[in-house]
Nucleic acid binder design. Structure first.
Lengths: 188, 188
DNA sequence: GTCTATAATACGATAGAC
DNA sequence: GTCTATCGTATTATAGAC
């Protein structure tokens, strides 16, 4: 049945999504994913021919989630500054995950950029979704000339905060730096 | 001969050091290292029993290099602000490597923190060398209360800059953000 | 669509001759 | 101290029965 198959496929993508984040892409095996998804290893190849295919599906899945989230934020907040500050609060909302595994976007891109440039160019598109959305908010705030610049700055600072928070397992640092980012947005 | 052995050992560490940076730790095999070092695979285990041992040796090697560099900076610059600005220029000096492979400290920690926490705690010590040194400079600049805070801020911003520079392969972004960091140090 | 069995390869690691 | 040969395991991936 197509329905049953589609449900299995989605469970594989969900399992791979979590494992790629928690273990890294290269350190996650087909067996790991099959076990977590509750799908027999052999049956696995019915849905995905190669590991690359799974990664591509996971990235598309994540991008879809990001798009839904950004649309949700746009509905909830109409002030561009409020929208930018909502972005900063992801850091606090996903505190425990960042402490343990870092940022899902950043760590995946870092891993793939070493030896899998082709796939990293797909993973980079997740950053692009945020970059474009943030840029639009800075533009609406009156920053016509440096909206792109500010969006990349905000992305870079968020990534640096996530990375150090993870390296030092320091929740106090995360809180302090998130507050600092928020104050920076207020001062713009 | 002990001399010949020591030279071989050093060549293995040098080769592993470069490969762990360029390919990542888990994506580098014994064969890769042996080939790059010009050492037969079997002979390999005479010097290092396990892959963990090589990583430990590489981290110690890197830490030694960092210590020498920091001592060199202290000899070259006596003004704490000049020393801090010297730190920022590493980003520019290692531009091509960052564009292609990211920051050696950051990317290794990110990789190990997922599934090799034990080894990550060793890799974190590389950050500690910089953190302690930067903290001392901020303290000398008159920041008695927030020297540690500022050191971690500078580390985080450098990491964020390296990560985005790598993800987007954007040398202009690197230059712009290094200038911004330098201006931030001037304004302190 | 689902499963078992298994091929084919690469890996970390060891034994032992020289 | 150096080398060849090889073990055992885990991996990606396939073939084929049901």
């Amino acid at each position: 049945m197509a329905e049953k198959g589609e449900a299995n496929r989605q469970r594989i993508v969900d399992a791979a999504n979590a494992l790629f984040y928690q273990k890294g892409y290269n350190q996650t095996s087909f067996s790991d994913i099959a076990e977590a998804a509750g799908v027999a290893r052999g049956n696995f190849y019915y849905y995905f021919k190669t590991k690359d295919d799974i990664l591509a599906a996971v990235i598309i899945h994540r991008m879809h989630g990001i798009e839904l989230m950004l649309e949700d934020w746009e509905r909830q907040f109409h002030d561009p500054r409020a929208r930018l500050k909502r972005y900063v609060t992801i850091l606090l909302n996903s505190r425990d995950d960042i402490l343990r595994y870092g940022c899902p976007l950043g760590t995946l891109n870092v891993e793939l950029s070493k030896t899998q440039l082709q796939q990293q160019s797909q993973a980079r598109e997740m950053f692009e979704l945020f970059r474009i959305w943030l840029e639009r908010q800075f533009h609406a705030l009156g920053h016509q000339d440096d909206a792109r610049d500010l969006a990349l700055q905000l992305l870079a600072r968020s990534q640096g905060i996530s990375l150090l928070t993870n390296v030092y397992s320091d929740p106090a640092f995360l809180q302090r730096e998130a507050d600092r980012l928020s104050a920076w947005l207020d001062a713009l």
